Amino acid sequence: MVVAAATTPAHRAVEPSITLLPMANVTVLGAGAAGLAVAAQLKANGVESVVLERGPEVATSWRGRYDRLRLHTVRRLSGLPGFPIPHEYGRWVRRDDLVRYLEAYAERFALDVRTGTTVETVKPGGERWSLRLADGSEQTTRTLIVATGYLHTPVVPQWPGLPSWTGTLIHSSAYRNAEPFKGKKVLVVGPGNSGAEIATDLAEGGAASVSLAVRTPPHIVRRTTAGWPAQMNGLLLSGLPEPVFNSMAATMARMEVPDLRRYGMERPTEGLKTRLRTQRYVPLQDVGIVRDVIAGRVRPVAAVESFTETEVRLADGSALSPDVVVAATGYGTGLPTLFDDPALFDDTGVPLVHGGPPARPGLYFIGYHVTLGGMLRELAIESRRVARAVSATR
């Protein structure tokens, strides 16, 4: 098995900060959207903070996403507090424009971001939290706000036989565009938003064939209907009782999305809101996958079960011989390895208390709540809530 490394997208080069950290009263981990938003809200409340970022620049995780990525939420509902996303970025903001926006956000509020600073462990110590850094040094802080996100650590299943496979495997986090895969047979594993969009990108970009392995059929929604975004449906209907919401979502899907069963894509059997509650699942927004499945450019296949040297064996007993497997198999939070306190997290590594009140005295988590109203909108709400909670303790 050959595991391909991620390709770094072109962007403005910035030398990592090597400034030594003073003893901070408030420290934020992560200079993505959540970390920047809460730091700006703290500052608006008169509380200064230091933001630690493992990467060389802000928005490290966004910079690493695939080239064609656009937000699945509308621009006006995706801005962070105090500074809207510029109108010229369009309704569906591109990855690179969002990175520019987050850079501008950090500059606008003069946030103290320390890049190139990796925190390896966090431990309580009296009335402060102790942070062990990758360089071996240790810093302390009275208040710690963790904003590293639930899409932090790529997860690849340990399929039987995988080490013996002679093809190329990459996680979706390492995929940038279709150029390296022209003329190759590619199997994408996982029909979530990333997997489906990567499959479409490969089909459009000249792959010899594209298959999409499906274990659990996705809920598919149209991004917009007569100009009305799917995000607004999520916002307006999310308060409905779960059975009612599930029934309405299934009815809307039958009306809006063609029946793909003849092409190998079954309809989901579990309700959308139920999957959101039990699995933090959000629906697949169609930005081309339905068209490509119908046209035969992307072929749905059964779930991956195992590997041999030359084949990928599927749950229905069939097998494929792809050149490349792209595992769009999700992420972990990475938090259980950061904290030596398993009681903080559920069995998926998500904090049991997050988005507002402290999980422990002086410890807050932000950016771990999945909603149908959009991740960035939720971050904006949580950043105000967490900043108020921290400010009240000063």
Rank of each mutant, 00 (worst) to 15 (best):
M232S: 09
H219C: 02
A253Y: 00
N246F: 06
R222I: 06
R254P: 06
W228T: 15
A249R: 05
A230G: 00
M255T: 12
I220G: 05
N246P: 03
P258T: 12
R262W: 02
A230C: 07
L260C: 08
R261C: 05
P243I: 04
L240P: 01
P217R: 03
P229H: 01
F245D: 04
G239S: 12
S238A: 06
P218N: 15
F245K: 02
D259Q: 10
L236R: 13
P258Y: 02
L260Q: 11
M252D: 06
H219V: 08
P218K: 15
A230V: 08
R261D: 15
P229V: 03
M252K: 06
V221W: 10
P217F: 14
G239I: 15
L235M: 13
T224K: 06
M265A: 12
H219E: 05
L236N: 07
Q231K: 03
V214Y: 04
S247K: 11
T216R: 09
R254L: 11
V221T: 10
R261L: 03
I220T: 08
R262V: 01
V244F: 03
R223C: 06
E256G: 03
W228C: 04
T224D: 13
T224P: 01
G234S: 05
H219M: 00
L235F: 08
A250G: 14
R261F: 05
S247I: 01
N246V: 14
E266L: 09
M265H: 02
L235Q: 11
E242G: 01
M265T: 02
P241H: 12
R222P: 05
I220A: 05
G264C: 00
P241N: 11
R222T: 12
T224W: 04
D259S: 11
V221Y: 05
L240F: 03
G227Y: 06
Q231T: 05
L260K: 14
G227A: 09
F245P: 00
E242C: 01
R222F: 07
T225K: 13
A253N: 04
N246I: 14
P218H: 15
M248K: 03
L240A: 07
L240H: 07
M255W: 15
E242P: 01
L260V: 11
L236Y: 10
M265N: 03
R262H: 06
P217G: 09
Y263K: 13
M232Y: 10
L236W: 13
P258I: 13
I220C: 10
V244S: 10
L237P: 02
R262Q: 13
E256A: 13
P243R: 04
P258Q: 14
N246E: 01
R261H: 11
R254Y: 05
A230I: 00
N246W: 02
P243M: 07
S247G: 04
V244C: 07
Y263S: 09
F245Y: 06
G264W: 02
F245C: 02
S238Q: 13
A253K: 02
A250S: 11
M255Y: 13
T224Q: 14
A226N: 10
A249I: 00
F245N: 01
G264K: 10
A249H: 06
T225M: 09
E256D: 15
M232K: 07
R223P: 01
V221S: 05
M265S: 07
P243W: 06
P217H: 09
R222D: 03
A249F: 03
T225E: 13
